[in-house]
Nucleic acid binder design. Structure first.
Lengths: 230, 230
DNA sequence: GGAATCGTTTGCGGTGCAGCAACGTTCCGG
DNA sequence: CCGGAACGTTGCTGCACCGCAAACGATTCC
């Protein structure tokens, strides 16, 4: 097991306000782990034996319906917790988490969850704040699905991704993870065909540039208007 | 202020596992309040000065979009907490809560939230479990909106309401609160027109009976098949 | 370097559902 | 008891979007 450096983690949201000594104590129980691209960190319905912190990379959280359709619930960025089934009062994972690129994660046994939240209340507070935030985000998504059209939702999804995983380039903001039309469709509740048509149309208007598993937002402002308004 | 009887509250989910003496201490700070039908318990964007427990009645939690569209987030039943903005790390209410019928609620000042969750950890645990449950429910709704057709969603919504506010009658399960076509539409992300068409079609097939602001589920099983399957 | 695979594009047809409009029905208040 | 408001129904029209199918480029793997 690699030696864990406290200084890399002290600033992260889940550990905000936590005493350095307590952070060290938590890290003693953590296991660092590499997860290659397209490999699962954890899988839907499996026993939640561990919870995780993403250190590096990007993770796709996916729910599969009984009839096999997939929905991308969210993308996890470095510094975020995931697989915190215990915080939801569950013993199994409600979704699968797939490494979108090669990732590094920290893993703790789920048994430690209640101990951590009790012994380190700052951590507990931060964790529950995360759940609260995700509830609000998810509710916003319900609203969007119920009231907005596909092109609004796709534009909004691209903006969120650009914000979350964007990398400045000469062309604009490159979404720095492999992102297929199918992925975008599963984020927005549509089909890859419709996404493809939208992207080619937007490319003609100079709003975005896109290629195989790759999207660059060229004009965030105009895209933002597309997302909200009209 | 009416005298509050502990025995009426001890069994409720939010107070599960809480010592009777602690429950009494919490009730000392509570204010009981009548809310007439169609009146707000709290309103979206307003300062979250209080959190509530519904004692009697049914409350509609509604979000209004910037452009004025409304979405019914959920219905609250007796024994449930609501307006717990503090648990989400917010200072304003993310939605409005409207009494669907004459209601009785218990109200506590929001300032007591952190005190309660710290001093009575069982209450804190229960409250955060509520948030976790709602996150899962909301995510299930995202899946449904993204993958199922309108008639599936409407059927499912009716079944949930029947389960939550159903009253056995000779005809079947009456949803025991005023429920307009518009309300159902706002729960499922469609229009009152489509809901009306669906209900008349289902009435012809003997699945439901419905009238002005009133729906009775006659054949839950067949409706359930409509909700999931085909 | 050629074949197989995967992601993408694009045309075409079909349809689920929204939007509008008109009308009917129930309820309520003066 | 009457008039109006609120809720519900229903026909028609349109179109946003899906689903299928076929073809095309880019990648990967022998």
């Amino acid at each position: 097991m690699a030696r864990l450096d406290r200084s890399l983690l002290a600033g992260l949201p889940p550990f905000e306000g936590l005493a350095p000594a307590d952070l060290d104590r938590m890290l003693e129980h953590a296991r660092s782990q590499r997860v290659p691209k397209d490999q699962p960190v954890f899988e839907q319905e499996a026993q939640a034996h561990a919870f995780f912190l993403l250190l590096d990379g990007h993770v796709r959280v996916v729910k599969t319906t009984p009839d096999g359709q997939q929905i991308i619930v969210r993308y996890i960025s470095p510094g975020e917790l995931m697989g915190i089934a215990r915080a939801l009062g569950r013993t199994t994972y409600p979704a699968s988490a797939i490494a979108a690129v090669d990732c590094v994660v920290l893993a703790w046994p789920s048994d430690l969850w209640s101990e951590f939240t009790m012994r380190y209340p700052e951590f507990g507070t931060n964790a529950y704040k995360t759940v609260g935030t995700r509830l609000q985000e998810t509710q916003a998504r319900v609203i969007e699905l119920a009231t907005r059209q596909v092109h609004n939702r796709v534009a909004h999804a691209l903006l969120r991704l650009a914000d979350q995983a964007g990398k400045k380039t000469s062309d604009g903001i490159l979404i720095d993870l492999p992102l297929s039309r199918q992925d975008i469709a599963e984020m927005t509740g549509t089909t890859l065909h419709t996404v493809s048509r939208l992207l080619t149309a937007w490319e003609e208007q100079g709003l975005v540039k896109s290629g195989r598993q790759k999207v660059t937002v060229v004009e965030p402002d105009r895209l933002s208007r597309l997302a909200q308004g009209d």
